[in-house]
Design a protein around this nucleic acid. Sequence first.
DNA 1: AGTATAACGCGTCACCTGGC
DNA 2: GCCAGGTGACGCGTTATACT
Length: 236
Amino acid sequence: MNKCGRKKYIKTNLRQMTMETIESQQDGSVTDSVAESESAHMQTQTGQNSVPTLAQVATIAETDESAESEGVIDSHKRREILSRRPSYRKILNELSSDVPGVPKIEEEKSEEEGTPPNIATMAVPTSIYQTSTGQYTATGDMPTYQIRAPTTALPQGVVMAASPGSLHSPQQLAEEATRKRELRLMKNREAAKECRRRKKEYVKCLESRVAVLEVQNKKLIEELETLKDICSPKTD
DNA sequence: AGTATAACGCGTCACCTGGC
DNA sequence: GCCAGGTGACGCGTTATACT
């Protein structure tokens, strides 16, 4: 793995750790059904913990360092530790069912709503949100952000499959294989874009939750202080 | 102005999961 | 069991920002 790749790998996992740390802290302090439901997602279906501990991540990083020096990277080992969690759509939708304020990630449908096709508008707390391409640009002044829904139509030039029975020559078979591969790549390309969009939405959602819970926590602390003052009058 | 670094998005591969 | 879709990881290119 090159320098950049490793950095991104570690960064990704640290970000994940940060999210989970926040969630677990919430779980411990303020009673939060959402946090509980989310932490439930941290378990794989086999009952094992799917999330690497901080030490594990550190170990991964160190292992990665040394592996690089030796020129050996054991991707399977990493995969064992970094098993997947449920989809962002699933998590967020469960989140939204628990907490009324949390927006749902919509299934791919575009034309029913009043909004223009392929654009979903969603209210979110203000935050700095900028990409190099300017695809998602919500500044502090902009209370909403817009998400482009994927275009489901196949690009021009993609020819639908000929029935296998109609293929004769090896050349035709090769062409068919190439066509299938291109179709698969194209679909995966779109899926990856969509996945990233959902991931960003998910992260934003969590960030907004953090903001809300911080305010809530602050209020509760203040309330507690007030009650303390009332219940224990000063003895001069 | 040139360079270094960080941050980000994209395409692809590999793997997992859920639906059939 | 097969297949389509979802997603983590990787490698690469681009852009923004800081530093010299």
